[in-house]
């Protein structure tokens, strides 16, 4: 059994792997990491070898190897859905990665420094609207009018949201506009990098169909859905652990 742990800016994800995902768990990356990791291990069960990745990979003291998150994402994209490109929309940034046939990184590019294309942005906005994160897709699908959001700043975009609420716009239309603005950023990033071919979208934000569908409409190539996209990097890490220590 191999464990992949991805310590992201917002969430820490863990996957127990044995040729397939055996179990998985997610915790907020908050406060003291020891207890975060302890909780995760409690949820996920026993493992033999572990690989960590993500911005806080170094904090996982029981990991025997560390691997870059772009590498883990590339491996997961190739092994799980056989994709040539990955568009990862994480807690704070958007990364485009092109992947070779063996699952190695050919090139990658991260977006302009701005948190508004991120999962954190979506969280802030939905909470301002009083929409639970799980309800975002359903709400956005009910939109009947296209609105625009323009602000670069995640917190200031909130004042745009309040303006709309004030003008009597429906929550559904507003959350759809928020999803749109994230999708647009992701599309610009993909186009800048030249994503086409068979591609997948990973990261926490990829859970939201209202965003992935908008992206898929706007960029060429064949979109293939990643199962449990938030776990992609931790799956990649687990595969790294298996390759490193497994007796295949």
């Amino acid at each position: 059994m191999f464990l992949g742990v991805d310590v992201g800016m917002r969430f820490t994800k863990a996957v127990l792997w044995d040729g397939k995902v055996v179990s998985a768990a997610i915790e907020e990356t908050r406060g003291d990491m020891e207890s975060v990791l302890k909780n995760l291990r409690g949820k996920i069960g026993d493992f033999e070898h572990c690989c960590s990745t993500g911005s806080g990979a170094g904090l996982v003291d029981f990991a025997e190897v560390k691997e870059d998150d772009v590498v883990c994402l590339a491996i997961a994209a190739r092994d799980i859905v056989d994709a040539d490109f990955v568009l990862d929309i994480g807690g704070q940034s958007i990364t485009a990665i092109s992947v070779d046939k063996d699952g190695n990184v050919i090139d990658f590019m991260r977006n302009d420094k701005c948190a508004s294309g991120s999962g954190r942005f979506l969280e802030v906005m939905s909470s301002a609207l009083g929409i639970a994160v799980e309800e975002i897709d359903e709400a956005a699908s009910k939109a009947d009018r296209k609105l625009s959001t323009t602000s670069q700043c995640a917190v200031f975009a909130e004042s745009e949201v309040v303006s709309y609420v004030n003008e009597g716009e429906s929550k559904e239309n507003i959350i759809a506009a928020v999803c749109d603005s994230i999708a647009k950023l992701a599309v610009a990033q993909a186009n800048r990098f030249g994503i086409g071919g068979r591609y997948t979208i990973t990261g926490g934000v990829a859970k939201f169909k209202s965003i992935t569908e908008r992206i898929a409409e706007a960029i060429g190539g064949e979109y293939v859905e990643f199962p449990h996209p938030q776990l992609a990097a931790s799956i990649g890490a687990a595969i790294v652990a298996e390759e490193e220590f497994g007796d295949v």
Binding site: L147, S148, T149, T150, S151, Q152, F156, S159, E160, V162, S163, Y164, N166, A177
Partner: peptide, 11 residues
């Protein structure tokens, strides 16, 4: 301001 930002009108 941002160009054409009707969304920003409250501010």
């Amino acid at each position: 301001k941002e160009y054409a930002s009707t969304a920003d009108i409250g501010r």
